[in-house]
Computed example of a mutant assay.
Amino acid sequence: MTGIRDVAREVEMSTATVSRALRGLPGVSEATRSRVRETAQRLGYVPSPSAAGLASGQTRTVAVIVPFVTRWFFAAVVQGAEEVLRERGYDLLLYNLGGDPAARHRVFETSLLTKRVDAVLVLSLKPSPEELRRLEKLGRPVTIVGADLPGWATVRIDDHDAAVTAMEHLLGLGHHRIGYVGGDTEGVLDFTAPVERLAGYRDALRAAGRSPEPGLEANGEFTVGGGMRAGRELLERPERPTAVFAASDEMAIGVLRAARELGLRVPEDLSVIGIDDHEMAGFFDLTTVAQPAHEQGRVAAQQVLHALAERNWEPDQVLLPTQLVVRRTTAAPALRPGRGGGRRGR
């Protein structure tokens, strides 16, 4: 069986240098690292994770705590993080909460993470003070994706600003009666985006001289199905909105389906805008505020790896930009909405 000494002999380097190159540790040039990895692959040498962990005190594993792994945004962030971790020889240990508060308790408030991982990524959850205390007690690098937590490493977009951008686009087109489809702003998982995006929607209305109407706000659960139900709720109102801002593209797609079932033309009878630039947004010609979901995962992984390599590392707060992408689901309102939800002539 090929061992690390065989690889070191082949490349004429010390076993310590070969070990550092294969584990992605600093102090090795990229040329050397590439040469060592190519030689190890050619000789069929596979490092033992357990042996490396015993020798270095590291597990070569990073935990990722995700609320719903099946949602597009979370999957995109995880994919970005996994790419970076894999490049550096780390494994990703996924903790999918699945919306279950008991699962959150098990991960945060027990010793589940102790001795299993070298670092932790937390996606779109704002940890409670007690959870932050437990994360700090781990003594491992932690990066929070999607939350603003001073003193902690974070990667996020400005959710409030993204919502204002979407609303200013609709208001600029001449829409005044604008519905909102979002998610619960209170709950055991404490998502960060629903609160900030709802606040952005309301603040944009106030800035335009209009008062928010609770009857124009509906819970779409951040899913396509929820968006459909919320869309029907808004569009079947006697005084329906001329436009709908959905706090995610998946909900916006649900609103588009609801409009179609009610015989409404988009954008002639109804304008719809979302946030994300979901992989299906282009297929639906959906106007949206694009956020770099994949890049958030990459940056978060880079942060914890940098923290593992640098003793004096200081937590960094990274704010990534968003961008309005105008497609064919938004236009100036052509008609004053009548009563009922069916199609009307010009």
Rank of each mutant, 00 (worst) to 15 (best):
S14P: 12
M251V: 02
G187R: 09
L43P: 05
V145N: 03
V69L: 13
R298W: 04
R339P: 12
L94K: 12
L305F: 06
T165L: 12
A207E: 13
S211F: 08
T192P: 07
V28H: 02
A163M: 06
A162C: 12
E83W: 09
Q317G: 07
A199Y: 04
A204V: 10
Q317Y: 04
R257T: 11
E196M: 10
G53P: 09
G151Q: 04
P67Q: 07
R229W: 00
V142T: 12
R9K: 14
V84H: 01
F108P: 08
L85G: 10
A51D: 10
A218K: 01
P47G: 03
R23Q: 15
F283N: 12
G98K: 08
G231Y: 06
E131L: 12
G342M: 10
T2Y: 04
A334F: 07
E217D: 00
A332L: 04
T32I: 11
R23E: 15
R33V: 04
Q58F: 11
P315L: 05
V272L: 00
G80V: 05
Q58K: 15
A162W: 08
D285K: 09
L286H: 10
Q317A: 14
T143L: 01
Q323R: 14
G220V: 01
V244W: 00
R33E: 11
T287M: 05
E279P: 00
P127C: 05
R197G: 03
E82H: 13
H169D: 00
V36R: 09
M1A: 14
T17H: 10
I4N: 08
E314I: 11
A162V: 09
P333T: 06
E186F: 13
A55R: 12
G345W: 12
A52R: 11
T322M: 02
E279F: 12
A290M: 06
V145E: 03
R177V: 09
A300F: 07
E236M: 14
A252Q: 05
L170T: 00
D249P: 02
Y180N: 07
M228A: 11
R177F: 03
W152Q: 13
H306L: 13
V164W: 00
E221I: 00
T287K: 04
D184W: 08
T154H: 01
P129K: 11
L94V: 14
L149K: 01
